[in-house]
Amino acid sequence: MKTKKVLVVDDSKLLHRMFEMMLRGFPLVHAFDGREALDRLAEHKDVELILLDINMPRMNGLEFLTAVKAHPEFARIPVVIITTEGTEDDTERGMQAGAAAYVKKPFRNEELLGVINRLTASPAA
């Protein structure tokens, strides 16, 4: 089975390290804010899933998500928002912006893995 490349966008080094542990079967690309993430996407056009934090410096997650969904080449990539912003309004805003799933921090690893497996297994991914 082809291994899908995942872009991790989060300003926490701890989370990047955790995703490296959790997603050992996936090649990861790392970015620490939205602007850097856009640069990484331009370099890695074969990214097939994005894990995205919301609160980040320079360009936040929602701004990045809006930019990705407006981009003809990247709009197809499913985006999982992973954030401490946990209200219903936050969730609705994220889903309306085009997120495929919304996971609240702190998350259980098996919960997030379930979402990732679902999105990477679907033909759309």
């Binding site: 080094k13 701890l14 989370l15 542990m21 401490t84 702190p106």
Partner: peptide, 28 residues
């Protein structure tokens, strides 16, 4: 991961940031 990250740096501000990240991201 928390242990690794706490001891991954010798910069005091980064250690503090890691403690904060553990509190926020892992403890909520």
């Amino acid at each position: 991961v928390a242990t690794y990250q706490l001891h991954a740096t010798l910069d005091p501000s980064e250690v503090q940031a890691t403690i904060a990240e553990i509190a926020i991201n892992l403890l909520g």
